[in-house]
Structure formats: C-alpha cells, structure tokens
Amino acid sequence: MNQDRLSPNEEDAITDAAAHWCMRLNAEDCTAAEREAFDQWLAADPRHVEEYRAMQDIWCTADLLPRHPPVVDLAARRPRPSRSWRPLASAAALALLALPLAGWVGWEQGWLPNHYQHFEASDRQQQVRLSDGSVVELNLNSELRYFNFKDQRQVTLIKGEAFFKVSHDSNHPFIVRAGHGQTRVTGTQFNVWKYQDQVKVTLVEGSVLVSSNGAEGGYRLGPGMQASYHLGDFEPQLAQSDDYDNSLAWRNGKLILDNLSLSQALPVINRYLDKPLLLADESTGTIRVSGVYNTREVSRLVDNLPKVLPVYLTRSKDGSTVLNRISPFSNKG
C-alpha cells in the first residue's frame, strides 16, 4: 500500500482491520499463525500502526470496558501525529466485527466513546477544539486524549499542562483525569498542571470538584482557589491562590518564580527541561529564587542560577545537572 491519499472506503477498511486484530489478539483461541499475520499486517503500512494504536487507546483508556486486549509495543514503529477521528468510526468497526449490535450496546452502556481525539504539543503551545465545542490550550511538552461517552466527556492529561474552557452541559459532565485524581465540571475555566505524580488544579471561573487517589466525592473549588495532590494523597490540599496570575503566566510564554524555595521551583522548571534539574541535598532545596523567564529559554535559567544564587553546578552519572549549595566556609565562587 502506498502513501497516497486514501478513499473513505479504504480508510474504513483499515479501521475495520485494526478493530479485528484488537479483538483477535484478545481472544483465548488466538493462534501463533494469527499473531504472525498481525505482525505482517502491521508492518505493511505505517497507517496500520497509526490506526491500531488509536484502537488500543480506545480499549485501554476506557477502563469501564469489561476486557482489554494485549497492548502491542509500538514505540519502535512510526509515531502517530495529532489528529481527530471520524465520529463513530471506531464504535462502528467494533459493531461490525464483534457480536451483533455490540458497538451500539457499548455506546448505550457507556463502555465505548463515539468520538476520540488525541493532541500533543512539543516545542510550541497549541490551542485545540474538542468535539463538544470546548477549547483547550496546551503548554509546551503536553499531551492529552479526549473521549466522548454517552454519560460523560472524559479527558486524560497524559503529561504537561492545559487550560480548559469547557462548553456547558449539565447533563454531560466533563472529567479531567491527571495523575491519581480527577477534576469534574459541567462548564467552567480552569488550569491543570501535571509533573510526574504531582498535580495542581487552578480554577478561574465557575466551580470544579477535585478528588484524589480514587476517593469518592471530592472538594469543590471556587474562583481563585487551587487544589494539589500527589500519589497516595487521600485528600487534595486546598488553598486560596496567592500566585493566581503566576500559575497562568505560561499562556503568555512566561515562567514566574515568586520567592519559591528551590524544592518548590524545580518541579515547575523541570517541566521544560529534557533532563531534570536535581538537588544535591535538602539544604540546597531551602534556597529561595525569584524571577520572570521565557518558557522557551528555561535551559538558560539553569546556567544562570550560579550567578544569582549561592549554588554551583555538577553532573550526575546520567548527565543530569545537580544544584549544590555553597557553604559559607567554602572557597567555591
């Protein structure tokens, strides 16, 4: 198959095949010959990789589904570009290839979405529109998936940071999953920041319900409030935001550090670095830093830290930069 533009029928054929392989690889009677045939189909065209990866997303991210097919490692294959799926394409493919009416039942039961979108921003910010009309601004190095289910709209923030302007629908709640928690709204504006197992939610307008660690219920935020949680936190930490504008400065390409300790600043700084900046010890983490920086030039901030703080830089074994505190009795300059 060449790389020319496909007809709608050809596109549907690839979608149907991806759905078929998703189900066959999950079947108990799947044979070695079938797995070999699947490998050959996957290698035949880069578009097969893209379509099968998207089908995996639907099965593996929609965790209300009763079963999950084996996840095939596609890391070494061609990466998938950000794109929007045709409405109902995946559900229709499953309906054709599974038991009669299975796709329709999956939608009616809330197991399968009728629309899926995937977006990724690497070296520049992006503004994207979801199929429900909501608008999302993505920070650098951010990625999310969107699923429209019958009873809810669901976003998974895989990494990074996003600002949401949610289209109001009181009968169709909008849920953002980030780390080990979620934010539930019907229509509002808010920011979600995620780094490793840390998440911070900042509310701008309306109200949101934030829960962590799978706890039922949640805590309601009003405008100007923040909720933060880590892995294992049973309850999110709530605060009235004193750095409200600072948290949203990234939308203007700025990183604002307002008298933060280095231990507080590093998770924010590391979001923009290829390799994380490390602290030599707890004492180094207590040093405070301030300043306004360009989000595209955070690496220059790291190089300049010894010029404004009592620290010097070393390298760890894996090549990461380490901040070391200069002792008052040290001769280091």
Rank of each mutant, 00 (worst) to 15 (best):
N2F: 01
S7N: 05
D12S: 14
D16I: 07
A17P: 01
R24H: 04
E34R: 00
Q40F: 01
V49A: 08
E50L: 12
M55F: 10
W59I: 00
C60N: 15
C60E: 12
A62D: 05
L64W: 05
P66A: 09
V71F: 12
R77A: 10
P79W: 07
L101P: 00
A102L: 07
R124F: 13
Q127T: 14
V128D: 10
S131E: 05
G133P: 07
G133E: 10
L138W: 07
L140C: 08
L140I: 05
Y146M: 01
V155T: 03
L157I: 08
K159T: 07
A162W: 02
F164Q: 06
K165W: 00
V166T: 06
S167E: 13
I175M: 15
I175Q: 13
R177V: 12
G181E: 04
V185C: 09
T188I: 12
K194V: 05
V204S: 08
E205L: 11
G206L: 04
G206R: 08
V210S: 06
S212Y: 13
E216R: 14
Y219A: 02
G222R: 09
M225N: 15
M225S: 09
Q226M: 10
A227F: 00
S228V: 01
S228P: 02
Y229S: 06
D233T: 02
E235F: 07
Q237E: 10
D245Q: 14
S247R: 14
L260M: 11
N270F: 08
N270W: 03
L279Q: 06
T286M: 07
S290L: 12
V292Q: 04
T295C: 03
V298Y: 03
L301V: 09
D303Y: 00
N304C: 13
V308F: 13
T314F: 10
D318I: 07
T321V: 15
L323V: 04
R325L: 11
I326V: 15
N331H: 08
K332Y: 10
